[in-house]
Amino acid sequence: MKYKVTLGILLAMIACLLLAACGELKETPDARVERLGKLIRCPVCRGVPIGDSPSELSKQMMTMVNEQVAAGKSDDEILFYFEQRYGEWALLDPKPEGMNLLIWVLPLCFALGGAGFIVAYVRKGKERQD
């Protein structure tokens, strides 16, 4: 019985992975344009992606994304095009390198520091009670 449940879970996981992979393969050009539009920052707005911005500049940038998708360019090539012109600032999903690593490292440091502080505080309290 236990063997059957494990096998069932494994098969379900494989099916989910296959479905996810198929979903990736079946992405339409429009869906790709929409997804890329969420990754590029509108240069004249505050923290809004070009796909959600009503500004004329963002609309034209979306047109360029559309053209580049139609021309068969990869996601990296399209994002690199905008990064080259507007700087890394234009990417809403910054690369995990250089100073950007702080975004990933700092929360971990704060969490570890906070946990250490709580442990030390509780231990001290216990020592006082003893």
Binding site: V44, L57, Q60, T63, M64
Partner: peptide, 13 residues
């Protein structure tokens, strides 16, 4: 007209 050159030059305003 299509702001192609403006975007190529990274103009934001």
């Amino acid at each position: 007209p299509g702001l192609h050159t403006s975007i190529d030059y990274g103009v934001s305003g």
